[in-house]
């Protein structure tokens, strides 16, 4: 194929919101040269993909450990959704450097990961996971919705699929925030503690830098999402009678490869099999 990235008729990018774009389609388009991300777009896709990948890894720890079987399935579904988004973003990012999604997921070192600190935070108890999930969904939903209008057709197509799934993640976490806050004294204590634990990581999500400025219409300026995030959180917090925690912001730096002490353990577990047995399949 000789079509260029910007050509909206390129087969892999002729995706309407109703048609799901699979990571395999992106990988194939990349191999055929129909889709190749620019250096900046690839770096941006890497950030979004790493956020989703690290969160999927964290969430999958809940399988067999959730309070009820039904919640096990719900969290497992959300983990798989996030993994799907990660695969798409990483496949596309890899097109710039001739790397596959697996190369990027399994064979990068910690300073090469671009995820924000929120996503690598330990699961804690169920309420802490719900607090993290609520923050993530309130950030990702407007982000992906705006990204569907990206001037980069592949990013727009990936976002079009992801936004519908994140819409459900938002609903799921909102329902649980309301129930934990309005449930028993113990559940209310836990959701308040969960938000207190996660809140320092909120600021980093909305930080702009040179890359997001250079991207222009291809990306979404992180700071432009903050007002909607605050409104979305305030609506639910008012109903749940929760206060926005006053915790000071954490240092951050995830977008530039500086991670918290939790990241190394997470990566070691995620990558050990692929590194021990390169090319293993099952």
């Amino acid at each position: 194929m000789t079509q260029s990235v910007g050509d909206s008729s390129a087969s892999a990018t002729r995706i309407t919101p109703g048609n799901a774009l699979r990571p395999e389609d992106i990988a194939q388009a990349t191999r055929q040269g129909a889709a190749k991300a620019s250096e900046d777009v690839a770096e941006y896709a890497l950030r979004l993909g790493d956020d989703a990948l690290i969160l999927a890894q964290r969430l999958s720890h809940w399988i067999s450990r959730a309070p009820e079987l039904e919640e096990d399935v719900a969290l497992g579904n959300i983990a798989l959704d996030q993994l799907g988004h990660a695969r798409s973003f990483l496949s596309y990012a890899g097109s710039a450097w001739g790397k596959s999604e697996d190369d990027l997921a399994y064979f990068r070192r910690e300073p090469e990961f671009r995820s924000a600190h929120l996503f690598e935070q330990p699961n804690g108890d169920f309420a802490a996971t719900i607090a993290r999930q609520f923050i993530v969904a309130n950030y990702q939903f407007p982000l992906y919705r705006e990204l569907t209008r990206s001037s980069d057709p592949m990013l727009a197509a990936i976002a079009a699929k992801a936004v519908k799934e994140v819409d459900y993640h938002l609903d799921h976490s909102t329902q649980w925030v309301l129930r934990l806050a309005g449930g028993t004294q113990e559940s209310r204590r836990r959701i308040i503690a969960g938000f207190k634990l996660m809140w320092p990581c909120v600021g980093e999500l909305f930080e702009d830098d040179e890359l997001t400025a250079r991207l222009g219409d291809a990306g979404v300026v992180p700071s432009s999402l903050r007002a909607e995030f605050d409104r979305g959180v305030a609506d639910v917090f008012t109903e749940a009678e929760l206060d926005v925690p006053a915790s000071p912001p954490a240092t951050g730096g995830g977008r530039h490869g500086r991670h918290s002490e939790h990241m190394g353990y997470l990566l070691a577990e995620m990558q050990v099999l692929a590194r021990e047995f390169p090319g293993a399949s099952w």
């Binding site: 009820e68 079987l69 039904e70 399935v73 719900a74 609903d171 799921h172 129930r179």
Partner: peptide
């Protein structure tokens, strides 16, 4: 299925 209330039951 098990669920704490009707709207969570629908989601489950």
């Amino acid at each position: 299925l098990h669920a704490p209330d009707a709207s969570m039951a629908l989601r489950n």
